[in-house]
Amino acid sequence: MTRKTFVSAAAPVIALGLLGLTVAACAQKGVEAPTETGVCYHVVLAEDGKSAPQINVVARNQPQIEFCAARLEEMRLRFLRLGGNNRDMIGAYQGQFIFIDRGGVKFGKTLTGQRFFALTRTGDGRLAIPGAIQREIDGRPVAVAP
């Protein structure tokens, strides 16, 4: 008893096409944050979403990523005082991206991946370490979580 299998003439072409797409997807790298030590950057994403982002130096000799976030927050507030309307900002420091928005500051390794919550906003809009904000409940101080 023999078994016949029919292979479509298009099957090798489809397989080759899928292999090509897989290789292209693996070879394509996302935007990486600059890794220069102690340099804080402002990242401006292209409006079309296809061009490479513009990366500008904001400050040098920044000892920690939190200091870079503070420089970016100063810049964001200065732009708002001058009449700007962009309330969100993206920066970079030593291979990590910094995301500043109305909720606070988050860090991430990529522009589109997971983000680590780092600083929260106080009631008056300043940035603080989560858990450092205290309020009283029934006469006892309690740390406020984000």
Results as ranks from 00 to 15, higher is better:
3 R>D: 15
4 K>L: 15
4 K>A: 11
6 F>Y: 14
9 A>D: 09
9 A>V: 13
10 A>P: 00
10 A>C: 08
10 A>Y: 11
11 A>G: 01
15 A>N: 06
20 G>N: 04
21 L>A: 15
23 V>A: 14
23 V>C: 04
25 A>N: 12
25 A>E: 13
27 A>C: 02
29 K>M: 08
34 P>Q: 06
38 G>N: 07
39 V>K: 04
41 Y>I: 06
42 H>F: 05
42 H>L: 11
43 V>M: 02
44 V>N: 09
48 D>H: 08
50 K>I: 09
50 K>E: 15
55 I>F: 00
60 R>E: 14
62 Q>I: 14
62 Q>W: 04
65 I>G: 03
66 E>R: 14
73 E>C: 01
73 E>T: 13
80 L>P: 04
83 G>M: 07
83 G>V: 03
85 N>C: 03
86 N>Q: 15
87 R>L: 07
89 M>W: 01
92 A>K: 06
93 Y>V: 00
99 F>C: 03
100 I>G: 10
100 I>Q: 09
101 D>W: 02
102 R>H: 13
102 R>E: 13
103 G>P: 00
103 G>T: 07
105 V>P: 00
111 L>W: 00
113 G>Q: 02
113 G>E: 05
114 Q>W: 06
115 R>Q: 15
116 F>S: 12
116 F>I: 09
116 F>C: 02
116 F>W: 09
117 F>W: 05
118 A>V: 08
119 L>S: 00
120 T>M: 15
120 T>Y: 03
122 T>A: 08
122 T>E: 08
123 G>N: 14
125 G>W: 01
125 G>Q: 02
128 A>S: 13
132 A>H: 06
133 I>C: 07
133 I>M: 14
134 Q>Y: 13
139 G>N: 06
144 V>Q: 07
145 A>T: 06
